[in-house]
């Protein structure tokens, strides 16, 4: 009989699944709260999305969004919820590194670090 690993793949998956669901729920609550503020503020305006001009600079990166959200700007709050949503699968990858390390699986620790690096590169804005 092979020695039983500290964590089985199945146990890891269940923890990861719950982590993902909690992240999505928290993100949805923040987005909904921001959405209520947003409609209270801008509900009577006419939407115009015909021409792409890109979001203002403060809604494009994590520090700007955090500042806007703390100032309770509705668009910033929604964007904060969306950042949390994007961070959810990223945290899943980060958690997997710890889980593979607990199994002493060096190959998969290395492979997972590569995936996490790609994600962090993108979240940092993707500048070479």
């Amino acid at each position: 009989m092979p020695k039983k690993p500290a964590l089985t793949d199945k146990q890891i998956e269940v923890v990861i699944g719950n982590l993902l669901r909690a992240g999505v729920l928290a993100a949805a609550v923040i987005v909904l709260a921001g959405g209520v503020f947003y409609l209270a503020h801008y509900g009577a305006q006419r939407p115009n999305y015909k021409v792409f001009s890109g979001e203002p600079a403060d809604l494009r990166d994590i520090s700007g969004i955090a500042r806007d959200a703390l100032a309770m700007h509705s668009r910033g709050v929604i964007q904060l919820g969306l950042i949390l949503l994007i961070a959810t699968p990223v945290s899943r990858v980060a958690f997997s590194i710890a889980a593979f390390a607990a199994q002493r699986d060096r190959l998969y620790v290395a492979l997972t670090i590569i995936v996490l690096s790609i994600l962090v590169f993108s979240l940092a804005g993707g500048h070479f």
Partner: peptide
Amino acid sequence: GVTAAASAGIYLNRGYIDPGLAM
């Protein structure tokens, strides 16, 4: 989800993600 997160960072940085639409 992981695949989409990899492009989401670029999208966010280039101003593709509008809170009023995405909400």
